[in-house]
Amino acid sequence: MKPTKDDTHAIVELLDVLLREGAVIQADVVVTVADIPLIGISLRATIAGMTTMTEYGMFEQWDTTHRRRTSADERTKPPSERR
C-alpha cells in the first residue's frame, strides 16, 4: 500500500500534528507558538464531515505531481515488478 495525504483522515491527522507538534522554539525573539489544542479538537470534528482533503483545493497540485511520479516509476519497472 502507499501512504496518502489527500483523504479526510490524512487532513485530520495533519491538523492534529501541526497544531501540537513540530519544533518548538524557546527564544526572546519568538512571539508565539501554537497553543491551541482545543481548536484542534473542534477542527477534527469539522474536517470529519468533509469528503476529501481536496475540497480545499490545497493538495490537488501535490496529488497530481505525486501520481505522475508514481506512474512514471511504474513505467520504468520491468513488467514482472509492476502491480
Partner: peptide, 9 residues
C-alpha cells in the same frame, strides 16, 4: 518543521 504559528520579531 516548526509548529504552526511560530513568529519571530
Amino acid at each position: 518543521p516548526m509548529r504552526f504559528n511560530t513568529v519571530f520579531e
